[in-house]
Design a protein around this nucleic acid. Sequence first.
DNA 1: GCATCGAGGTTGAAGCGTCAACCATCGGTA
DNA 2: TACCGATGGTTGACGCTTCAACCTCGATGC
Lengths: 153, 153
Amino acid sequence: MDNWLDDAEQRAWRSLAAVILKLPAELDQALQRDAGLSHIEYWVMALLSEAPHQRLQLSHLAAQANASLSRLSHVVTRLDRRGFVVRERAPDDGRATFAVLTDAGRVQVEAAAPGHVATVRALVFDGLSDQDVADLERLCASIAGRLDRGRPV
Amino acid sequence: MDNWLDDAEQRAWRSLAAVILKLPAELDQALQRDAGLSHIEYWVMALLSEAPHQRLQLSHLAAQANASLSRLSHVVTRLDRRGFVVRERAPDDGRATFAVLTDAGRVQVEAAAPGHVATVRALVFDGLSDQDVADLERLCASIAGRLDRGRPV
DNA sequence: GCATCGAGGTTGAAGCGTCAACCATCGGTA
DNA sequence: TACCGATGGTTGACGCTTCAACCTCGATGC
């Protein structure tokens, strides 16, 4: 094992691993409890609510939500069944599909937003200085960049 | 929404979210492909291999692996079925159970380790300076601390 | 001794994500 | 115009995680 992690890297890796294992679970739990939504369901609806005409093509939505197309398709199916989103075929390209947020979906996501933001703040940002936030963004962006390069979408 | 995230927090949150969504998926994929193990299965065996007499009580193992006891029990069952781990009742406390790494398990985890370390290095640490690594540890430890306080194990 | 409560652990059902196979459509090329 | 590869998307089966119910054992009070 010539290429082992040194001590500082070990510690950093354990801390990072704790975050990537626990944070998603906590977010999902809180959202599920407060709004009956999973984290991705919330995120997908939030992205749609910010998009022009509350609509986005599925592949673009998948990229923005950091999800595989297959996963996103399942999510949209679930949201569709609940009446929060509808599918629409694109008129100009027969392959493309749009997801469109319904009024009920917008109501739902707007109701969930304040609680979710509070959770994120409590779990992540409380206790971080402005400099910390900047560092966090720089480091995560660097790592995320390597993730995309390894498996380019 | 008086308590919204400001611009810098938004960006940091998006980057962090990308990491916590994609990194576990990549790690699992790489480990599954190279060694036929999931990330937790690997981690559980790695923790056992470092423990005295290659054994740990299930609840301690769960805490160290950042997993629920239920999840850990399922993982141990799978590893047991494959012959990598065995269960042992504690002699002094009839409730406690130990997981013990078998020889086959040790061979397996030692074979998987170099590739896994290389993956972690490629995805996380390549391109980070020593200072970055220190920052990463500090920030993640801070966040992880808040995660534990929110839902104390 | 005996009830009671809590800690440690297991189990089965239900929900979610991945993977691979598949279908439809578009763009280019001959 | 007819083919062919690439793009966009869907689906079903399988595996993993969670959740809730449950069981056993130890400690405590009486």
